[in-house]
């Protein structure tokens, strides 16, 4: 089974792109399943189910969804194998721009949209910079020039990636993406022992553990203070 991780800011078009891409994969008689990771709420599982795609969802609740993802990814891999999938796609919303759920040797796709603005690519960290494929959506509602500028900004922060424009509504470009996902050579039985491409932020402070009160005396563990001095 191939495992593919798809990540991207909320509402960037991940589900739309995955749904259209699975249509193309299914036509090649590949069996595909999806796991959706989110924080508090998601309806995506309903969308996948409606399309007849086997789906599991995991809500991280008070935890960071990417931390939650990485603690559960082996379990869902085993689920996918048991179901006999050729391809298991995980969808997770990158909420903090600093995390990224990508694993070494596991194909990583980042989905961002043209509407997010030309300065967005440099604000998104490893989720964009270390992706193998960057999918840019919502090109149908901006100009050719904006698409070119946006793609060139993405290329500046990740020159290694394959950058593709996909229309999440019509599916234009999703067939092309589908040809890049399935590869017998990358099949995995387990991902135990594999490593994250990038460390997740190390934060363990009193607020992580449920503290709600504000003030210096309640702040414990990993605390860092804002620098309000003028720099340089």
């Amino acid at each position: 089974m191939n495992l593919i991780t798809v990540s991207g800011p909320p509402s960037s078009g991940k589900t739309s792109v995955i749904l259209k891409t699975i249509e193309a994969l299914t036509r090649r008689d590949l069996k595909v399943g999806v796991v959706k990771f989110d924080c508090l709420y998601t309806d995506d599982d309903v969308l996948y189910e409606k399309a007849g795609i086997p789906v599991k969802k995991g809500l991280s609740g008070a935890m960071c969804p990417d931390h939650y993802f990485i603690s559960n990814v082996e379990e869902v891999t085993q689920w996918g194998k048991k179901e006999g999938f050729d391809l298991l796609i995980s969808e997770s919303a990158g909420l903090c721009n600093r995390c990224s759920p990508y694993i070494k040797e596991i194909k990583a796709v980042c989905v961002i949209d043209n509407l997010s603005g030309v300065n967005t690519p440099k604000k998104i960290g490893p989720m964009l910079k270390s992706a193998d494929i960057v999918v840019i959506t919502k090109g149908d509602i901006v100009s050719q020039a904006e698409r070119e500028v946006f793609a060139s900004r993405v290329n500046l922060v990740n020159p290694s990636a394959v950058i593709m424009n996909i229309n999440g509504l019509t599916g234009q470009g999703s067939f092309e993406l589908s040809t890049l996902l399935h590869d017998e050579k990358n099949a995995v039985d387990t991902i135990v022992g594999k490593e994250l491409r990038f460390t997740m932020p190390s934060a363990l402070c009193s607020y992580c553990l449920g503290e709600t009160r504000i003030g210096e005396s309640y702040q414990m563990g990993n605390v860092r203070k804002i620098n309000l001095e003028n720099r340089q």
Binding site: N114, V118, G139, I141, V142, S143, Q144, A145, R147
Partner: peptide
């Protein structure tokens, strides 16, 4: 390749979303 694109496509429903004037916009491009 991002820089060597075979085709440019004129969009169907075209909106500009950037907060720029015409000159700044073309400059950026």
């Amino acid at each position: 390749s991002t820089s060597k694109k075979l085709v440019a496509q004129l969009s169907q429903n075209m909106n500009f979303v950037m907060d720029l004037n015409v000159r700044e916009f073309i400059e950026l491009h």
